[in-house]
């Protein structure tokens, strides 16, 4: 089976569901936070970029929707990857008890973040649909979501692996994510950058995927399907490489987790 065995995918889904139920049970507003969190973050960015830097957003049509698409898409990536810094070390109790592929644990973190993202996308689509109407190009959204999921899974697996082997790296992950956020075109259009910068920014897959979501949702145009398929293919190859890496260093990972 792809990456982990079928029964472990079933476990990952159930575990992710329980993570969400457990998290919601501890909060006064429960499930509402899955909607409120992206709304709050979007509101903060909107206030900052609209009122504190009035020149920003001026050149971009429908800046609020532009920003909301960028932030909600980015949060899926950032939450999933950010949760993977301690995911292997946090699995100590079960790793010291059962022989399990370690790739299972970042997978659970990504599935948990992805289930939350379903709520976020529902709100996003309702908002965008009400503001700009629904288009047949929305049929491309599953392709974009799968592409982004592959990118997230590969990044999360790398972060989990590296943070388990060299724990110091976990301190750099948040800074790295912040840097990547500013390089992903959340607050500006990469098309507005000079040609020499555009090339470098588009090496960041999150920057490109955010552009694709905006193309579909705001401009009702088709995404770059070839890029998406290429990203899925490269991501899948990368994931198989990571699967080999996890198997090859399983002993090291186990010792790091148990010790």
């Amino acid at each position: 089976m792809i990456l982990i065995q079928t029964h472990l995918w079933r476990y990952a889904l159930y575990r992710a569901y329980l993570n969400l139920v457990g998290e919601a049970a501890k909060l006064h507003l429960g499930w509402l936070w899955w909607f409120l969190e992206p709304i709050a973050m979007t509101a903060v960015f909107f206030a900052v970029f609209t009122y504190l830097r009035p020149m920003r957003g001026g050149g971009i049509e429908n800046f609020t929707a532009f920003l909301i698409i960028g932030v909600t898409t980015w949060l899926w990536f950032a939450n999933a990857v950010g949760n993977c810094t301690d995911v292997l070390v946090g699995a100590r109790a079960i790793v010291s008890q059962m022989r399990l592929p370690k790739l299972l644990f970042p997978t659970i973190a990504v599935v948990s973040a992805s289930l939350k993202q379903v709520f976020v996308f529902v709100v996003l689509l309702l908002f965008i649909g009400a503001m700009f109407g629904v288009s047949w190009t929305w049929l491309f959204l599953p392709l974009l979501a799968v592409t982004q999921l592959v990118i997230i899974l590969a990044t999360a697996a790398v972060v989990a692996f590296v943070c388990c082997c060299v724990r110091d790296v976990r301190f750099l992950v948040r800074s790295g994510l912040t840097l990547m956020m500013f390089c992903s075109g959340l607050f500006f259009s990469i098309d507005d950058l000079g040609a020499e910068w555009r090339f470098w920014f588009r090496l960041n897959p999150m920057a490109v995927i955010i552009e694709q979501y905006r193309a579909v949702l705001l401009h009702h145009s088709s995404p770059d399907v070839a890029w998406c398929l290429g990203a899925v293919a490269v991501g899948a190859l990368f994931l198989f490489g990571l699967k080999w890496l996890y198997q090859r260093f399983d002993r090291t990972l186990t010792r790091r987790i148990i010790a």
Partner: peptide, 25 residues
Amino acid sequence: QAGFDNELSGERNIVMHGMLTGLTR
């Protein structure tokens, strides 16, 4: 240590343990 999740009920832990060993939910 048993790998139980302290935040979940005994029943949920039984289910998760079974799923890890290959059973369906």
